[in-house]
């Protein structure tokens, strides 16, 4: 699904991380760990296509879903309006039996935001914003997910919920690359793990 060979990225003529190579098939999860600032987010942005890699090859069969640190939530729109916009704009899974309103309602309930569905984005807590931005995982149909620190700000219940969503995705033949700085990690998954170490300038890549 995703194959990467000797991929590296330079910023101002300095490598952010050493060349990276890995293969990711259907149903597999790659966990990228490392300290703050070692280049995990940069790697995901290169994989998503937001940054141009400076060397190496990146083969990705289709556009991945990228959920980064910015939640893409509008402060002036309600949770429901935000989700509706994302559904219409970014696309959603084919569910012929459901109209948009029902699907939107279902997503809001599943993600645990039913109580605040009509509240404006600015009134949400950090964890609720994270849930709202992760709501895309429930209605999108991309096969490859790139999740940048998806557990940050989530409460215990949210973490369990996210693990459940991820398990369903992997069982359906999806794949996922996830970064984490270590303290929170997916529990009970079969996974490949890679560790990025901060160098003086560049980070090295090590299969754990």
């Amino acid at each position: 699904m995703l194959s990467v060979s000797k991929l590296s990225f330079e910023r101002y003529f300095e490598r952010v991380f050493e060349p990276v190579s890995f293969e990711l098939g259907a149903g597999s999860l790659l966990l990228v760990t490392g300290a703050n600032g070692c280049g995990k987010t940069t790697l995901l942005r290169v994989l998503a296509g937001l940054l141009e890699s400076s060397e190496g090859e990146l083969n990705c069969h289709q556009q991945p879903l990228y959920a980064g640190h910015h939640p893409a939530i509008k402060d002036d729109l309600s949770v429901a309006e935000n989700i509706r916009f994302l559904m219409n704009f970014m696309g959603r899974r084919e569910t012929p039996d459901k109209v948009d309103d029902d699907l939107c309602q279902e997503v809001i309930e599943k993600i645990g935001l039913a109580a605040v569905a009509q509240q404006e984005g600015r009134t949400l807590s950090a964890g609720q914003r994270k849930r709202c931005s992760l709501s895309r995982l429930l209605f999108c149909d991309e096969q490859l997910w790139l999740l940048d620190e998806p557990y940050s700000n989530l409460d215990h219940e949210g973490i369990v919920m996210l693990d459940g969503i991820l398990r369903g995705h992997l069982e359906n033949g999806g794949a996922c690359v996830m970064t984490t700085h270590g303290s929170l990690r997916p529990e009970g998954f079969e996974l490949q793990e890679c560790f990025m170490r901060s160098g003086r300038h560049t980070s090295t890549w090590q299969a754990a």
Binding site: K74, D76, L77, F85, N88, F89, M90, R92, R93, E94
Partner: peptide, 25 residues
Amino acid sequence: MSKPALSTAFWALLRRDFLLAYRRR
């Protein structure tokens, strides 16, 4: 892959912008 039609995305964006403009009138 069910990427929304261009017109759907265009109108969704336009609608969002008007809604935002109304909220920040």
